[in-house]
């Protein structure tokens, strides 16, 4: 088996490439594919080179070609194949495309230390949802009111299941946030979500631009209390809980 190290390594590399291309859905962006294949290549090469016998068998076919001991057809194939592969790579990189340019967008913009809300300054540090009370009945009432607010305002983009798949969702790029995804609101404190709701797309920070968000500035349309109620609902409705630094209250 060790005699075929070179061929096994090539086959493994191709299998990983095919697996990532064919099995991951939706398709993996080229930037991530590049990272994954680079690391897979590195892993294979390090493994091969970490043992003298493996390494010897791995380089044997290469040495045979470059020292002229391999069959002429193989030598010709390799010597022609390398420039052709490079040319193909160069073509792929330089060929004109209609694709929109790459966007180095960050998933979580950093919140400001404070922002303007209805003419007054709100400090994000220590900001908490005033309606998240320990009284279950009151909390339920606020959440139910938040649900109504959600369906009157947010539902059209964020969807019935809060999965970012509302009626208008596909008109936007990027599409609205999926609240059911563990990587969205469940990663964030309510203060962060409140800032995003209150200031919308125009409130996004200058860092990590360009931004493309169709989120309205909800403080122009809703009261502070209504926004907090809607936030209560998106957490409850999506089955997630806000990030907090305090221990969970005992149930």
């Amino acid at each position: 088996m060790i005699r075929y190290t070179f061929y096994i390594a090539i086959a493994l590399w191709l299998a990983i490439l095919a697996g990532l291309k064919l099995l991951v859905r939706p398709p993996m962006p080229a930037s991530v594919m590049m990272i994954y294949m680079t690391l897979s290549t590195l892993g294979i090469l390090v493994f091969v080179a970490a043992n003298e016998e493996r390494f010897r068998h791995f380089v044997a076919p290469l040495k045979a070609v470059f020292e002229g001991r391999a069959p002429k057809a193989v030598q010709a194939l390799v010597l022609a194949g390398i420039p052709l592969l490079l040319a193909w790579g160069a073509w792929l990189r330089t060929a004109p495309t209609w694709d929109a340019p790459y966007e180095p967008r960050v998933v979580h913009p950093e919140p400001p230390s404070g922002f303007a809300l209805h003419g007054k300054r709100i400090e994000t540090a220590g900001l908490k949802n005033p309606l998240r009370t320990a009284d279950a009945a009151t909390l339920e009432k606020h959440t139910a009111e938040g649900k109504t607010i959600y369906y009157q305002n947010c539902f059209f983009c964020h969807g019935d299941a809060l999965a970012g798949d509302g009626h208008f969702a596909n008109a936007f790029s990027p599409i609205p946030a999926n609240f059911r995804d563990v990587g969205t609101i469940s990663m964030l404190q309510e203060s962060f979500v409140f800032w995003r709701v209150a200031t919308g797309g125009p409130g996004l920070p200058k860092g990590a631009t360009p931004w493309s968000s169709a989120m309205p500035v909800w403080q122009n349309l809703l009261t502070e209390e209504e926004m907090w109620k809607a936030i209560l609902y998106i957490y409850a409705g999506s089955g997630s809980t806000p990030r907090t630094w305090e221990e969970e209250p005992k149930k």
Binding site: P26, P29, A30, D99, Y102
Partner: peptide
């Protein structure tokens, strides 16, 4: 190594972002 190097904020073209449904990939995320 691959998991550790997976970016949270993925760089993607417009077409790739449309296919992913945003800058957040449901699986890679």
């Amino acid at each position: 190594f691959i998991v550790w190097a997976t970016p949270r904020s993925i760089i993607a073209s417009g077409a790739e972002m449309s296919a992913m449904g945003g800058s957040h990939h449901p699986f890679l995320g």
